[in-house]
Design a protein around this nucleic acid. Structure first.
Lengths: 181, 181
DNA sequence: TGCTCCATGTAACACGTTACATGATTGC
DNA sequence: GCAATCATGTAACGTGTTACATGGAGCA
């Protein structure tokens, strides 16, 4: 149940509405944890039920239905408790591997185009992350603990995309070898 | 729905029972696609319903309840059809990133031990994969297309574990920096 | 006899996805 | 006036997880 905890973290940084959270999840947090707005609304309702967060009408004089959520002490405690639990390992789980194995068994299926498509997406993401890094974490800058951790998270994304971009090149080389069919 | 297709691939390599498949998924295929026995039984039932596979009692004279599944032509066609579809990108999705961000917000939580635990697991897996590589794909050997693809898949696992092992070292360094709290 | 492994399954639940619905506000 | 965006939600479904159940086979 870590969507709840991702939301708690986000709300601690800034009290927000479900809608705002959904949009923020398309950016920073969304680099490593995606969620749709339906998921977020459902989870916020549960968290309020559990007493981790409270909501109030947004301070706009009732012009909108917007609700502002903020973290209660119990929510903060819960986040700390959870963060110390062992984190399940993320295992490699990729449909493309299943497809490659299928290709090996039922003959060449022309997966090259698909791999090229993915390579392009990885390179695109990589460039985006590197741009953010250059902007937010310029070389030689002194950073707070919080900023250093945020930088680490960004570098994780960079490592991830760079690895898969490199993998794509190797996979294409293997599929294009003509010898030994 | 790629569990079905992973099972089809497996069954094409060798007709098997659900139990056998579950055990094989703990090995080779399980490097990149895990499944519990319940999932496998449920999926096999559906696949038989769909006419992709057929089952017969194992040739042991009715001593066991074992069922042998084999792929029908429709199943082979379905596998080929599916393998050509675009494969959804695997996105980075890691609870540890959520925990790191929580650590940045609600103060040092001592995640170092957790990261060390994971580093050890990655290194262990890496060693296991490298041993398999040395055994099955010795240097300088000529390989068939099928074997080259299997080697590629194994190298994917190696890349993956090596990347995360290296990441763990960097993450520990960041968390252990004392300056600038 | 009792233990472990073989072999298959039911049931309930958690989580994520997709489709659909509603109504208000903002900008052209 | 109309479209896009804001803002929240219901419903149904697919997949994966966990717990529990059943019964035979092989072995000490």
């Amino acid at each position: 149940m870590s969507l709840a905890h991702a939301l708690l973290t986000s709300l601690l940084e800034k009290s927000s509405s479900g809608y705002d959270l959904a949009r923020r999840f398309d950016k920073s947090i969304g680099f490593f944890w995606r969620a749709t707005h339906q998921q977020i609304y459902r989870e916020l309702a549960r968290m309020e039920q559990a007493g981790w967060i409270s909501s109030e009408a947004a301070p706009d004089g009732g012009r909108t239905r917007k609700k502002l959520y903020s973290v209660k002490p119990a929510g903060r405690r819960e986040l700390k408790r959870w963060a110390r639990e062992p984190a399940p390992m993320v295992e490699l789980r990729d449909e493309l591997m299943v497809r490659l194995r299928a290709d090996a068994v039922v003959g060449p299926l022309g997966l090259e185009a698909e791999i090229e498509r993915r390579a392009a997406l990885h390179i695109e993401k990589l460039a985006a992350y590197r741009a953010i890094e250059a902007r937010d974490f310029p070389e030689g800058s002194e950073l707070s603990r919080e900023a250093r951790i945020q930088h680490l998270i960004l570098k994780t994304g960079i490592m991830y995309e760079a690895s898969w971009a490199a993998w794509s090149r190797e996979a294409l080389a293997v599929l294009r070898e003509t010898a030994g069919d």
